[in-house]
Amino acid sequence: MQKGDSSRIILEEYAISNAVEHSIVQEGEPWSIEKFAENLKVEIIREGDNGRELEFDLIGCAPALANAFRRILLSEVPSMAIEKVFIRNNTSLIQDEVLAHRLGLLPLRADPRLFEYPALPVSEDEDASDQDTLRYELKVTCSLNPHPRKDSRRPEDIYINDNVYSRDVKWVPLGQQAEIYPKGEEQLGVLESDILICKMRPGQEIHAFMHAVKGIGKDHAKFSPVATATYRMLPEIKLTKPVKGEMAERLKGCFSPGVIEIVRDKKNGPDDREARVKNARYDSCSRNVFRHNDLKECVQLTRVPDHFIFTIESLGALPPAVLFLEAVKTLKAKCRTFIEEIDNIA
């Protein structure tokens, strides 16, 4: 296999042999902030799923930087989650600990920036500060439906409240919170309404108070503000030889739809099909070309090492763009601390 452009990560059939060579993008010349600032580009590509998903390109930086943002988004940007559950009554089938765990994983609407981190020894009793705690209540009792649908034996028809959903978790103002947050439930409630918490049967009851606090994903995954934040390097596909005719069709089938297009050119003779790379961006990098011995000679699969396609899927408490900015702020703060520490040594 011929060695291609050394500035690209080459996807070979069985390995990515030059993967490590690109850890430092700027080889040779000394790193300068000006040059970095000049090269760094951020392009927003797509915003989707009710503004909960953001795809943007981070171009011109080392993977370490992109990765730092990813890691911070996953585990260090704070969010609010239920931390303490005070169970008054739980006669349902679900165990107290499991119920508490499930409640803890519910995503909340609250903006973590409005709250403090909880005071360190979290007080055992229920009086908590309105500065760092949100209080919720879940009170559901299952009963027989007095007016069941005729001839139906389906649980949802003959019982009331047989399914406990996340919408049954209600926000309860603490201290001054009712005045500070006039929008209340809308601003601080539970994000999704239809998360099934528990199933019940008549006579069973759940009554619990919950305290939500601000925390980070490092402590527990429930505090992570994103479903996931990830990046991938921009794929690049080069055709080293023209691919024509039937081969072109096969080549097209080897990649994700829209990656390879077939151009018809009269000059190419009777079978006028020829494959061209249309847009390699959305290729899944499945490398299935390598299954065809004749095709693999004609293609070189590479990835651009300093072009990151960043995707942030927010849980919904904050828009992904804001989350990214938070991540940047966190990184900045961390750098400051680090520099301070270094200065202190000297």
Partner: peptide
Amino acid sequence: YSGITGEPLQAY
């Protein structure tokens, strides 16, 4: 990709 360095892993 390695989660620690952020670089691609050498092997698939």
